[in-house]
């Protein structure tokens, strides 16, 4: 099992996943997809923490991942409840319907 891991590849993968999620958030209009993309971004953040922790051989990175996990769980539960309400009230999952907060 004596393998060497390249130091930056994990971070690079995290960056790519994060940006893919970001593109999704910016382009999709379906709010379910937006929530999914946010999950992808959160997960990419967790990956970045874990790879950084591996690089420094510290447990802190993994602790942070656990926190992110907890936060993601809370966020998803509230977010999905909001999606249900939105679908109930507007009969739509299009975020562009929710543009009434403009000036």
């Amino acid at each position: 099992m004596m393998t060497h891991i390249p130091p930056n590849e994990g971070l690079l993968l995290a960056a790519i996943l994060f940006l893919l999620g970001l593109i999704g958030v910016m382009t999709r209009r379906n709010i379910i997809y937006i929530l999914m993309c946010i999950e992808i971004m959160l997960n990419a953040c967790g990956l970045a923490f874990v790879s950084a922790g591996a690089k420094w051989m510290q447990a802190d990175g993994q602790v942070m991942f656990i926190f992110i996990l907890a936060m993601a769980a809370a966020e998803v539960s509230v977010g999905l409840a909001l999606i249900l309400q939105m679908h109930n009230q507007h009969k739509s999952v299009d975020v562009n319907v929710l543009n009434q907060l403009k000036d």
């Binding site: 970001l22 937006i34 975020v95 562009n96 929710l98 543009n99 907060l101 403009k102």
Partner: peptide, 17 residues
């Protein structure tokens, strides 16, 4: 700048990015 306040969530995200 008041044009940019159009209420579209994705537009705001683009601004952030």
């Amino acid at each position: 700048f008041s044009r940019t306040q159009n209420g579209y969530l994705r537009w705001y995200v683009c601004g952030l990015v």
